[in-house]
């Protein structure tokens, strides 16, 4: 491999020089943590970047929480974006977990998301601040009527959350539910 040359910048030749770390931190904070827009950046491209990051993040969280996302259907993207806009990511597992708990508290967690939340809570202990850890003891967890049990590391959904009667014009939002449930119940 070729060695990189030593740095060649002349300090002081540029008012921004030496401030890259600080300026990168300002840009990231503006994009993911509701920080003020950094000086000199055009607002349109900043907003477009913020929206693109949220879309990307929503897709990644949906991969970790497929039932939660499928349960929200067409509302997933906007629900996630509203919740996540000023919250920096804590990783897709925790992002989805925090969102599911927030929706649960507000009474708007869809049944498929309740199933998924109960299964996750049964398998891992999560205090909302640090990475979730495997539970050492057997556990029974509930979310909106969903009941999951974990014994010796194996998690089963004992009872799914009750589904509301199908609306007269079902739009297929929850189509992935049935397919996804089986995969999750097996631990």
């Amino acid at each position: 491999m070729t060695d990189a040359s030593p740095p060649t910048s002349a300090p002081g030749s540029d008012p921004h020089s030496g401030r890259l770390a600080e300026r990168q931190a300002e840009l990231v904070a503006a994009l993911v943590a509701g920080g003020p827009p950094p000086a000199g950046f055009a607002p349109g491209p900043l907003a477009a970047t913020r929206a693109a990051l949220l879309r990307k993040r929503a897709g990644e969280v949906a991969r970790h929480w497929p039932l939660l996302a499928a349960g929200l259907g067409a509302r997933w993207a906007t629900t996630f974006a509203r919740w996540a806009a000023d919250r920096p990511t804590a990783g897709s597992l925790r992002d989805g977990w925090d969102l599911a708990r927030a929706l649960h508290e507000r009474g708007v967690l869809p049944p498929a998301g309740a199933d998924e939340l109960a299964v996750r809570e049964a398998g891992l202990r999560y205090d909302g601040r640090r990475a979730p850890r495997p539970r050492r003891l057997p556990a029974v967890t509930r979310a909106d009527g969903a009941v999951a049990v974990q014994i010796a590391g194996r998690v089963r959904l004992l009872r799914p959350a009750p589904r509301p009667p199908a609306p007269p014009h079902a739009d297929g939002d929850g189509a992935a539910d049935a397919a996804g449930s089986a995969a999750w119940i097996s631990d």
Partner: peptide, 9 residues
């Protein structure tokens, strides 16, 4: 990432 925050992309 910068300043302790992950940009995610």
């Amino acid at each position: 990432r910068a300043g302790g925050l992950e940009a995610g992309h």
